[in-house]
């Protein structure tokens, strides 16, 4: 899950921490966005719950991407 704003990413981090969801905070790959943005990396099984949380709290994300062998494929 990529964010344009690092503050939006850190807001998402705080919300997911509160729900004890496992994820990693990582630099957003350049193939997704230019800048110094942050992303949350998590297992696909967590996607629905995480989406519910960020949507309920109006956290603005850039999009959700699935990592493939050679690229990041947009999901949302």
């Amino acid at each position: 899950m990529a964010f344009d704003s690092s503050q939006q990413a850190l807001r998402a981090e705080m919300l997911l921490d509160e729900r004890q969801i496992t994820f990693n905070l990582i630099p957003t790959p350049a193939g997704i966005t230019a800048g110094c943005a942050l992303s949350l990396a998590f297992a696909e099984g967590e996607l629905e719950e995480i989406l519910d949380i960020v949507r309920a709290e109006n956290v603005q994300m850039r999009g959700i991407f699935r990592r493939t062998e050679s690229a990041y494929e947009p999901l949302i």
């Binding site: 344009d4 704003s5 110094c36």
Partner: peptide, 17 residues
């Protein structure tokens, strides 16, 4: 500079950036 949407010439639309 905001550290975000660096490819854009305008300020990002995302808040608070």
């Amino acid at each position: 500079g905001t550290g975000s949407q660096s490819e854009e010439t305008d300020q990002p639309s995302v808040r608070p950036d």
